[in-house]
C-alpha cells in the first residue's frame, strides 16, 4: 500500500493513531516508506517508545517526530492523559529524539484547565530543543464535545493566549517556530479544515477506510470505502461519493454559496457542521455568517464561565464522570 501511495503522488505520510507505536511492524513500515520516497512523520503520545526503538526508526529513515503533551505540570497532564508518569516519559522521548538529530514538534493540546501553563510549555519546548511548537486547541466533536463545558477556554484566556504567543514568536524567531490557531468558537472565519474536503489530505483508518479526515466517520450517512475493497486508492480519492460530496464549492448552500471566502475556507469543518447543526452540508457554525454562530458562541462562553472542571472519561458504557469534587485549575 505504501508503494501505491508513492506511485499516485502522495508526498508525505503521517503515522498516527490511535497510537502508531503500538504497531509491532512500525520500523518496517517506516523503512518501506523511505524506500519508496515518502516523507514520514510520526505522531505519537510517546509513552510506549524505548530508546532502542526510536533509534531503529531514525535508522529506518523517519523524518520527523511529533509528541503530544497535555500541559507542563505532571499532575494535570497525567490526569488528562489518564496515565501515571506519562509526562516524564514524554520528556525523555523528546530528548532522545533530539539526540538522534530528528526534528521535533511539541504538540500541546490546550483547553481551559491548562491554558495558564502556556508560558511554561513554550519554555519547555525551547529547553527540549524542539523545532516547532503547535499550540492546538481541542476540537469539539466526538469526545471533546461531551466534555466541552470542562474544556472550553474563556474569552479572556483566548486574548491572553494570543498575546503570549505573539510575544514568543517574535522572541524565538529562528529558534522555535510556533503555530497557533484560535479556537473555532472564538474565531470570525472558520478554519480551512484539512485544506478543504478531499483537496490535500486523506486518512486511512485502522480498519482500512479511506477518509477525508480522521473524524469523518462521525458524519452519518456517508459511505467510506476500504483499501481492502475493489477500488484503488486513487479511484476512491477521485471518484467515490464520500470524497466528492463536499469537494470544492458545488455542494454549498447559502451563506457559503455566494460568499467571497468560499475558496479560502471551503465552508470550514464538515464534522463540526454535522456535530453542531445536524447537517454536514451546512456552514460550519464557527463562521460568523452561520445562522447558528451567535447561539453557539453564547453557549460556549456561558459554559466556559460556569467553570465546571469535571471530565467525562471515555468508556464502553458511554462515559463516566470523574468522581469526587471538581478539580480547580
Amino acid at each position: 500500500m505504501l508503494s501505491e501511495l508513492a506511485e499516485i503522488g502522495v508526498l508525505q505520510i503521517h503515522f498516527s493513531g490511535g497510537e502508531p507505536t503500538a504497531r509491532k511492524d512500525l520500523v518496517e513500515l517506516v523503512r518501506h516508506a523511505s524506500d519508496v520516497g515518502l516523507y514520514s512523520n510520526l505522531i505519537t503520545s510517546a509513552v510506549l517508545l524505548t530508546k532502542e526503538r526510536l533509534g531503529a526508526l531514525a535508522e529506518a529513515g523517519l523524518c520527523h517526530v511529533q509528541i503530544s503533551f497535555q500541559g507542563n505540570e505532571p499532575i494535570v497532564a497525567d490526569r488528562v492523559a489518564g496515565f501515571k508518569g506519562a509526562h516524564a516519559k514524554k520528556l525523555e522521548v523528546a530528548r532522545w529524539t533530539r539526540e538522534l538529530d530528528l526534528p521535533l514538534t511539541v504538540n500541546a493540546v490546550m483547553h481551559r484547565q491548562n491554558l495558564f501553563q502556556l508560558p511554561d510549555i513554550i519554555q519547555m519546548a525551547v529547553d527540549l530543543d524542539a523545532d516547532r511548537l503547535e499550540v492546538a486547541n481541542v476540537q469539539y466533536y466526538g469526545w471533546a464535545l461531551k466534555n466541552r463545558a470542562a474544556l472550553m477556554p474563556t474569552f479572556e484566556q483566548i486574548e491572553e493566549t494570543s498575546r503570549i504567543v505573539e510575544e514568543a514568536q517574535t522572541r524565538l524567531k529562528g529558534i522555535l517556530a510556533i503555530d497557533y490557531v484560535v479556537p473555532d468558537y472564538y474565531a470570525l472565519r472558520p478554519k480551512k479544515c484539512m485544506g478543504g474536503w478531499g483537496r490535500q489530505f486523506f486518512n486511512i483508518s485502522p480498519s482500512g477506510k479511506i477518509l477525508p479526515c480522521h473524524a469523518a466517520e462521525t458524519i452519518t450517512g456517508l459511505e467510506f470505502l476500504s483499501v481492502r475493497g475493489d477500488h484503488s486508492i486513487a479511484w476512491i480519492w477521485q471518484h467515490s461519493e464520500a470524497f466528492n460530496r463536499y469537494r470544492g464549492t458545488g455542494w454549498m448552500a447559502e451563506p457559503c454559496k455566494s460568499c467571497e471566502f468560499r475558496e479560502i475556507d471551503f465552508g470550514g469543518c464538515r464534522c463540526q457542521a454535522f456535530a453542531l447543526s445536524g447537517d454536514a452540508g451546512n456552514t460550519d457554525p464557527a463562521c460568523t455568517l452561520s445562522p447558528l454562530h451567535e447561539q453557539i458562541f453564547q453557549q460556549a462562553a456561558t459554559e466556559a464561565a460556569a467553570g465546571n472542571n469535571r471530565f467525562i472519561y471515555r468508556n464502553f458504557a458511554g462515559g463516566t464522570p470523574e468522581t469526587g469534587s471538581d478539580h480547580g485549575a
Binding site: I8, G9, L11, Q12, H14, G37, Y39, N41, C63, H64, Q66, P103, T105, D131, R132
Partner: peptide, 15 residues
C-alpha cells in the same frame, strides 16, 4: 525533491 506527479520541485518538511 522532484515531484514526478506534479512535475515540479518541492521541499518536504515536517508536516
Amino acid at each position: 525533491k522532484f515531484d514526478e506527479t506534479r512535475q515540479r520541485w518541492v521541499i518536504l518538511a515536517p508536516e
